[in-house]
Simulated scan of single mutants.
Amino acid sequence: MRTCLALDLKDNPEGIAQYEHLHQPEHIWPEIPAGIRAGGITDMQIYRIGTRLFMIVETAEGVDLNDAFNEIGKLPRQAEWAVLMDGFQQRLAEAQPGEHWAKMKPIFRLNA
């Protein structure tokens, strides 16, 4: 199942550059992608325009994304990574209570 999420980065060019740097394959902590996969997420992509981040998450059949994120958060270094990333990020005004990345509503699918 595909889910799309949005979040903003703090409007700080140096912080944005550091955020992108930390997400490059040669700089991301190896526990992070390993933990994401272990949680049942089969693909994850993050895109940026300005300060807006857009994440596409694909989960295995029958995997609830909230449950996957909760399980991932219990794995080694994931909580440390989340705290580090939180220093760069800010929630959207549209985010629901308790929601860090705001879930986006699908409005068009070519192959629905």
Rank of each mutant, 00 (worst) to 15 (best):
Pro30His: 05
Leu65Met: 09
Glu26Leu: 09
Ala68Ile: 07
Ala68Cys: 10
Asn66Trp: 05
Ile41Met: 13
Val57Gly: 07
Ala60Cys: 09
Phe54Trp: 10
Ala60Ser: 12
His27Asp: 05
Val57Arg: 02
Gly39Leu: 00
Glu31Thr: 08
Ile28Val: 15
Gly35Cys: 08
Asp43Pro: 05
Glu31Asp: 14
Gln45Asn: 11
Asp67Gln: 15
Gly62Pro: 02
Thr42Asp: 10
Glu58Gln: 14
Ala68Lys: 04
Met55Pro: 03
Gln45Phe: 07
Pro25Asp: 08
Gly40Cys: 04
Glu26Asp: 15
Met55Gln: 11
Ala38Arg: 04
Glu31Arg: 05
Gly35Pro: 01
Ile32Ala: 01
Val57Tyr: 07
Arg48Leu: 11
Ala68Ser: 09
Ala34Gln: 03
Asp64Arg: 01
Trp29Thr: 02
Arg37Gly: 10
Ile46Met: 11
Val63Phe: 07
Ala34Lys: 01
Gly39Tyr: 00
Leu65Gln: 07
Tyr47Asp: 13
Ile41His: 02
Pro30Leu: 04
Met44Tyr: 14
Gln45Ile: 12
Ile56Pro: 03
Glu58Arg: 10
Glu58Met: 11
Ile36Ala: 03
Asp67Val: 14
Thr59Trp: 01
Ile49Thr: 15
Gly50Val: 07
Pro33Ser: 03
Arg48Cys: 12
Gly39Pro: 00
Ile32Ser: 01
Thr59Gly: 08
Asp43Leu: 14
Thr51Met: 06
Pro30Cys: 05
Ala34Met: 03
Asp43Asn: 15
Gln45Glu: 13
Gly62Glu: 00
Asp64Val: 09
Gly62His: 02
Pro30Asp: 03
Gln45Met: 11
Thr51Ala: 13
Arg52Tyr: 08
Asn66Gly: 15
Ile32His: 00
Asp64Gln: 04
Met55Trp: 05
Glu58Ala: 14
Ala38Glu: 10
Pro33Leu: 01
Thr42Ser: 15
Thr42Gln: 08
Gly39Arg: 00
Asp64Cys: 13
Thr59Ile: 06
Glu31Trp: 05
Asp64Ser: 12
Glu26Ala: 14
Trp29Ile: 05
Asp67Arg: 12
Glu26Gly: 10
Glu26Tyr: 04
Phe54Val: 14
